[in-house]
Nucleic acid binder design. Structure first.
Lengths: 152, 152
DNA sequence: TACAATTATATTGTATACAACATATTTCCA
DNA sequence: TGGAAATATGTTGTATACAATATAATTGTA
């Protein structure tokens, strides 16, 4: 029994497709709620990181969000321009830029606190299935990272 | 026991994050292989659709890929400029544009046929787990579509 | 059968993503 | 200790995404 190239190449047989579609779809669920706060999705997840741990470096945010610095660097500048964060050079290491929330940036957290609940109610996967999905996704991410040889 | 807003808002508790990260990560696995063929990921999934069913409309491709026409319209123009497809107005309905593969577009399929296998070997989720993930993602996509009231 | 909705596609504007390259510092050693 | 290598961030170029709007054609109907 040979490997069936034709079958493997069908859109419906490549996990990349539902993964990509589901990702854009879920982000789309956040968008209307975020728009009310004047936030984009990427800004929102950057805030999630900062609300959990303030005063971290640009690089730490990149790592936590698994996003390129070429993506976050301009984003953080915008967030600074909007008055939500400050960017200061570290005293220890002049290459490092520390991101700190302003009062406005912290205040935004309260306004955003009901968003996860609202989105969860739209996305009717059972708690068990959500947990399963969650674990599978993290396994997928973990495997790929290690396949890139980044053991740190 | 009240709803724990603070806990729900943690990055690690929102499925959107690993979903988005895994999606970008998997696309990243395709990229180097696609680059050899001069293709981007979005062009690739558009080809997957066309290799399965040729001569379809722009709208059908949008539906199958769950992508906006504002995304696909320019993409298809590029693919036409590259000589892989032709865009012709339907005779029945002058609003409709039919996308047809050229000889070059069909020939590309052979060059791309080993990509799914190569990517699968990088992404070391067991076949059972891949199937589970696949089903969960389709359930997620399905639920969201129906929540938008698009039963068609 | 005019003409108001609907439909299919295209265009514009804004915001990511990432690769590749650039710059400024800091570390590491020979 | 004088660079070479590594590190942290910034910038540029290319390619999406999608909302909002525009345009042209078709349909439904009063």
């Amino acid at each position: 029994m040979d490997y069936d190239y034709k079958e493997a190449m069908k859109l419906s047989n490549q996990v990349c497709f539902p993964l990509y579609a589901a990702s854009r779809n879920v982000i789309g669920l956040y968008t209307p709620h975020l728009k009310k706060l004047g936030l984009t999705y990427t800004q929102y997840i950057a805030f999630l990181v900062l609300w959990e741990k303030d005063g971290i470096t640009v690089g730490e945010i990149c790592d936590k969000l698994m996003l390129d610095n070429g993506t976050l660097s301009p984003l953080l500048k915008k967030m600074e321009a909007a008055g939500y964060i400050t960017r200061t050079r570290s005293e220890d290491d002049d290459r490092v830029v520390l991101i700190t929330l302003t009062k406005e940036g912290r205040a935004l957290q309260k306004k955003a606190r009901d968003i996860p609940e609202k989105v969860a109610s739209c996305c009717s996967l059972s708690p068990e299935k959500t947990k399963m999905l969650y674990d599978l996704l993290y396994e997928l991410i973990g495997n790929q990272n290690s396949s890139k040889g980044e053991t740190k």
